Amino acid sequence: DSWHDTVDGIELELHGADEELLKLAKELLKRGVSEEEVRRIIEELLK
């Protein structure tokens, strides 16, 4: 799946992010949310 590559990229960027955020990112990508949107959501949550 192409979203796996996206998640791997996000995981590299979010090496400090907790497991729950990564699960959320994967779930959003699986549901068709764009990579940009996922990054934006996670950045908001990390604030």
Rank of each mutant, 00 (worst) to 15 (best):
V7M: 14
R40F: 05
K26I: 15
L28K: 00
S2Y: 11
E20G: 08
K30P: 00
S34Y: 02
I41S: 01
L22F: 06
S34L: 03
V7Y: 15
K26R: 12
K47N: 13
G32F: 01
E44N: 07
I41K: 01
G9Y: 13
I10E: 03
K23E: 13
G16H: 08
E11A: 12
R39S: 05
I42F: 02
I10D: 08
H4K: 13
A25C: 02
G16T: 13
I10K: 07
L14E: 03
I10Y: 08
D18N: 14
V33N: 03
L46D: 01
V38M: 02
L22N: 04
L14C: 03
L24V: 05
G16M: 09
K30H: 10
E36I: 07
D8F: 05
L12I: 13
E35N: 06
A25H: 02
R40Q: 09
L22E: 06
E44M: 06
R31C: 11
L46Y: 04
K30N: 15
V33M: 09
D5M: 05
T6K: 13
A25N: 00
L28H: 01
L22H: 06
L22S: 05
V33Q: 05
S34G: 07
G16R: 02
L45E: 02
E43M: 14
E44Y: 08
V7S: 10
A25R: 03
I41H: 03
L12H: 09
V38W: 01
I10L: 15
H4C: 07
D8L: 15
E19N: 07
S34C: 05
H4N: 12
E11T: 12
W3M: 11
I41R: 02
E37N: 06
E13W: 14
H15C: 11
E27I: 06
D18I: 07
L12Y: 06
E13I: 11
H4T: 09
G32M: 01
R39M: 09
D1C: 01
E35W: 15
E11Q: 12
I41L: 05
E13C: 04
E11Y: 04
D8M: 15
E37R: 04
G32P: 01
E11M: 15
E19F: 08
